[in-house]
C-alpha cells in the first residue's frame, strides 16, 4: 500500500462538491476505494441510496470515472451486465483497455432488496468487486431498520416505545453469506482503517473472479453522534469486537486486526443516540444479552481464523 503522502498526490476520482452529510463515511469509502484502484481504469455502479443521490445531482457528478446507476436492488446485476459487455467487446477486439468494475450498495441495497441480485452475480463469477457501505439502516429514506441493523438499535420502523426497545432481532451475517459463495476474496472492515480498507480493495481487484467487501460506515444522522466522531466510531466497532476486521481468501479465514484489549460493547454504544434507551436500568438484561451475542460471534470467528482469544 502506498503511503498517505503518495496517495495525496493521486488524482481524485471521487471529487468534492457532493452533497453527502458532514461527517458521512460513505464519501470516504468511495474516495479511498478509487484511490486504491490506482491508475487502472474502473467503471463504477451504485445502488440507489445516499452515495448515489448525493454524488450525482444532475447536471453535476462527483465521479471522474464512468458511473452508472439504475435502481435500488440491482447494483450487482447492472455491474454484471457492464462486465459482460466488456468481455464481449474485448473478445471481439472492439475495445483495448484493461478495465475493473466496482459496484457499491448500502446495507439496504445489499443485505435486503439487492441480496438476490448480488448472490446471482457472485455465483456467475463476474470479475467485479462489490462494496457494501454498511451504515446499518435505510439512512437515505430516513433511518428505517434493515437486515443489517443490530439488535436494540432505534430506527424509525423499529422504534423504541412504551413496550419496545428498538429492533428485536440481530443482524444477519452477510459477510459469512458471501464467503459461502466460495468466491476468491471476501473482506470485512471499518471506516477508520484506511490502510486495511485500501489493501482489501487492491487485493479484491487483483483476484480472478468476484470479490466482496463489507465495510461498516458510521452514519452520524442515523446513529446520532457528533460528525467529527465518524472515524472514532468505526474504530470502536472494531475494538469492541462488534465488527471484526478479517478476510476470507480462497476459503481461508484471516483476522486482519486483533484489538489489544477487547472493550465492552457499551464503549461503542454509549456515544450513539440509537442505543441511548439501552442504558436505562430496565434494559440492562438486553444490554447483557447483546454482549453475550458479540462474544459468541467473536469466539466463532477466532476459531475460523485459528486465533487465540485476546489475553
Amino acid at each position: 500500500m502506498a503511503s498517505l503522502k503518495e496517495l495525496a498526490k493521486r488524482p481524485e476520482s471521487f471529487t468534492g462538491g457532493h452533497r453527502l452529510c458532514t461527517g458521512c463515511g460513505a464519501g470516504t469509502i468511495a474516495r479511498q476505494a478509487l484511490f486504491a484502484a490506482g491508475d487502472k481504469p474502473v467503471v463504477v455502479t451504485s445502488a440507489t441510496g445516499c452515495l448515489e443521490v448525493a454524488s450525482t445531482i444532475f447536471p453535476f457528478s462527483a465521479w471522474n470515472v464512468p458511473f452508472f446507476h439504475s435502481a435500488f436492488e440491482n447494483s450487482a446485476a447492472s455491474c454484471s451486465g457492464i462486465e459482460t459487455a466488456y468481455r464481449s467487446l474485448k473478445k471481439q477486439g472492439k475495445i483495448a483497455d484493461d478495465i475493473r468494475f466496482i459496484a457499491f450498495g448500502g446495507d439496504g441495497g445489499t443485505y435486503d432488496i439487492g441480496l438476490q441480485s448480488l448472490s446471482g452475480a457472485m455465483e456467475r463469477r463476474h470479475k467485479m468487486l462489490y462494496i457494501c457501505y454498511n451504515n446499518e439502516a435505510y439512512m437515505n429514506t430516513g433511518i428505517q431498520r434493515s437486515g443489517a441493523t443490530p439488535r436494540g438499535a432505534h430506527t424509525t420502523t423499529a422504534p423504541t416505545g412504551k413496550v419496545k426497545t428498538g429492533k428485536d432481532q440481530n443482524r444477519k451475517d452477510l459477510t459469512a453469506i458471501m464467503a459461502a459463495h466460495d468466491i476468491p476474496y471476501v473482506g470485512q472492515t471499518a471506516v477508520g482503517y484506511w490502510n486495511d480498507f485500501m489493501t482489501k480493495v487492491q487485493k479484491a481487484l487483483e483476484v480472478d473472479g468476484p470479490s466482496f467487501i463489507n465495510i461498516i460506515q458510521p452514519c452520524r444522522l442515523g446513529w446520532g453522534y457528533k460528525p467529527e466522531d465518524t472515524m472514532v466510531l468505526g474504530r470502536l466497532a472494531v475494538e469492541t469486537c462488534i465488527w471484526p476486521v478479517y478476510e476470507v481468501v480462497n476459503g481461508e479465514y484471516k483476522l486482519n486486526i486483533k484489538p489489544k484489549e477487547k472493550k465492552p460493547v457499551t464503549e461503542f454504544m454509549k456515544h450513539q443516540v440509537r442505543f441511548k434507551h439501552l442504558f436505562k436500568p430496565e434494559n440492562q438484561t438486553l444490554l447483557n444479552e447483546i454482549q453475550v451475542e458479540v462474544d459468541q460471534r467473536w469466539a466463532k470467528l477466532l476459531r475460523l481464523c485459528n486465533e487465540q482469544p485476546i489475553a
Binding site: A77, S78, G81, I82, T84, A85, K91, G120, A121
Partner: peptide, 27 residues
C-alpha cells in the same frame, strides 16, 4: 460472438441488459 448471461431473475435480466447496453454493447 455473444456473451450470454443466464441471470437469476427477469429483474436482473433487464438490469444486466441495461448495464450492458449502457456499456456500449448491442444487447
Amino acid at each position: 460472438p455473444t456473451e450470454f448471461v443466464a441471470v437469476e431473475s427477469e429483474h436482473s435480466a433487464m438490469s444486466a441488459c441495461i448495464g450492458a447496453c449502457a456499456a456500449g454493447a448491442r444487447t
